[in-house]
Simulated scan of single mutants.
Amino acid sequence: MKNIVRLMSLLLIIGAYNTRFSFLSLNILLAYIPLELSFQFFRVKKNSLKIGLAALFMLYFPNIPYLVTDIIHMDILDIYNHFTGDSIKNLGDWTLTVVLFLAVFSFVLIGFGQLLKLLNYIKNRYALNMTQVSLILIAACLLSSLGIYAGRFPPRFHSIDIFVRPWYVFKTIFLNWSLVKLEIVFLFLILHLAIVGVMTMNKQLSKLK
């Protein structure tokens, strides 16, 4: 499973490189980092290492749902005629469409699955009830929503910025607010919770005979 994810990530990174979606190579790499961190979390035994890996996982996790917002770049592809309403038979750009879909679908499915697996571990490790776990999940999704906003809208932070200029990042994300920011972050939060809800419903349906 882990090696398949690693191979898939590598193929998607290579597939997007030197195309009009070259930005996807970096975004996929950043989305892969939290997956690898989660793999290592369940491999190591020392509690201190687990705490560090969990913290880094949450730091890089927003890069996974951030891929959803990359659909805004679809307008650079020549696949649709807005005047006639017809699709254009452009194999290269349709290939990029498929690559984008695979990246979003795969990383969201696996990434949120790892998030829920991590929460389940915390639940069992510290004997938490469902209310406590739900609050942790909402908090994690809210922080991820803030991360997406910080990465998509000016001044557009990258994951490395939190290490280079931590106070400026903290101040901009948590202390500078506007009504529009609140609305967009709330929208991203709904996206997170909807993904979790769909995955939970799918899990329940799979148990039905």
Rank of each mutant, 00 (worst) to 15 (best):
S38P: 05
K171C: 10
N47S: 12
L29Q: 03
I13F: 11
F57V: 11
R156F: 03
L119P: 14
I110C: 06
L208N: 00
Y149N: 01
L142E: 07
I136K: 08
L116A: 08
W94E: 01
N90E: 10
A150N: 05
Y66C: 05
G147Y: 04
K123R: 15
I184Y: 06
V5K: 05
L175W: 11
K181Y: 07
L116Q: 15
M74H: 05
T95K: 07
G15Y: 11
M1T: 11
I190P: 13
W94N: 14
A31T: 09
L182T: 15
G111T: 03
L67H: 07
L102W: 07
F23K: 10
T172Q: 04
N63I: 08
V98F: 15
K209T: 14
V169P: 02
N81R: 05
R43C: 01
I72L: 07
G15K: 03
I4N: 10
Q132A: 10
V198H: 02
K89Q: 05
S48M: 03
V196C: 07
S144I: 04
K171Y: 10
Q132K: 08
L135A: 09
L146A: 00
H158I: 07
K89G: 03
F112P: 09
K171H: 12
T19Q: 01
S87L: 12
L193K: 03
C141D: 08
M130T: 15
V196R: 00
L91F: 15
P34K: 04
Y66D: 01
H73K: 04
F107N: 12
F42D: 00
N47R: 06
P166A: 01
L59P: 13
H158C: 02
G52R: 13
